[in-house]
């Protein structure tokens, strides 16, 4: 067992946690304004791919991050337009965007790199790793906490910032109001539509970063559909964390740990099929503890009288 739960397992949990956490925070902010964003998976995939493209085109990490954010922003704008402006069914739009993301990345992989399946170039630079002074010298803890990509640390800061924003600022308060009772918020002159757009775009930025961590942080390559359901796991993390940044972080931590455990177990003479299943099984088990709103409430919301 000692070999199983060693330093590198926890260190890798932190790496695995980051993409899920970032996307889940994006999902949380969307949920807070009343939009259930099923498109996290697609947004993340776009982020992962465009980060690689940015890297290939510019060779600069900063620029490739910016490029990834730009692409996911454009994509989330599409989501916002369809679901807020055109009032299309959010879930259908989310599913459609996932399809589009998969189609676009596969096509572009072919069109830009002329490869199928995966793109890898040993000249590509991954996200820089940060060694934190003092902490890196602490035994065990240093190994776990130090030496990760910037985005790992950034994601922790983002959790705190988002928590502060939502529960301590005027603007965050209004965002919560817009989600809780849009009609009332609108009657008070709160620009609900603008807030919803803002939330979806912020979600885009976060998913862009999540994707970048996936393709430039954890590895330095892109494979077709490399998000592998992480967007949906992030959605569950959003739900489990009740769209509260700290709660979402907790839920993501669980899923990140399970993912790194699943990778680790492969070294233990277990069929990979079962180890690969672990994150999904755990996610489903975790859902046991989260009661969905239930169809009654859902129906009340959508069929409620206009009186």
């Amino acid at each position: 067992m000692d070999q199983l739960f060693d330093v590198s397992l926890f260190a890798s949990a932190l790496r695995m946690l980051t993409p899920i956490l970032l996307a889940a925070l994006g999902g949380a902010i969307c949920a807070r304004v009343g939009l259930f964003n099923v498109g996290l998976e697609g947004l993340m995939l776009i982020g992962a791919f465009s980060a690689i493209v940015g890297n290939y085109l510019t060779g600069s990490i900063a620029l490739s991050l910016l490029f990834a954010i730009g692409c996911t922003l454009a994509f989330s704008l599409l989501f916002a337009f369809m679901s807020i402006q055109l009032q299309a069914n959010v879930i259908v739009v989310g599913i459609a965007l996932n399809f589009l993301a998969l189609g676009l990345t596969t096509f572009s992989l072919r069109a830009i790199f002329d490869v199928k399946g995966a793109y890898y170039d040993k000249n590509m630079v991954g996200l820089p790793k940060l060694n934190i002074p003092v902490i890196e010298d602490i035994p065990w803890l240093g190994g776990v906490l130090s030496g990760h990509s910037v985005l790992v640390y950034a994601s922790i800061l983002i959790v705190a910032a988002l928590h502060y924003y939502l529960f301590r600022t005027v603007s965050g308060f209004r965002l919560l109001a817009a989600g809780e009772n849009p009609t009332a918020a609108r009657s008070l002159g709160i620009k609900v539509t603008r807030i919803q757009y803002g939330a979806v775009l912020l979600c885009g930025v976060l998913c862009g970063l999540a994707g970048a961590q996936l393709s430039l942080g954890n590895v330095t390559m892109f494979t077709e559909g490399m998000t592998a359901g992480r967007g949906f796991i992030a959605l569950v993390a959003t739900m489990l964390g009740q769209s509260n940044p700290l709660g979402v972080a907790g839920a993501s931590l669980l899923f990140g740990f399970m993912e790194s455990l699943s990778i680790r177990l492969q070294g233990f003479a277990m069929p990979t099929h079962f180890t690969l299943m672990v994150p999904y099984v755990v996610t489903i088990l975790a859902m046991l503890f989260f009661k969905d709103k239930g169809y009654m409430q859902e129906a009340r919301k959508s069929s409620g009288s206009s009186r």
């Binding site: 599409l78 369809m82 055109l86 009032q87 299309a88 069914n89 259908v92 739009v93 599913i95 459609a96 965007l97 399809f99 589009l100 993301a101 998969l102 189609g103 676009l104 596969t106 096509f107």
Partner: peptide
Amino acid sequence: SIIQSVLILFVSAKLT
């Protein structure tokens, strides 16, 4: 696959 996804995207605007 691009054509397919765009199809879906436009159809989801049907509700619209």
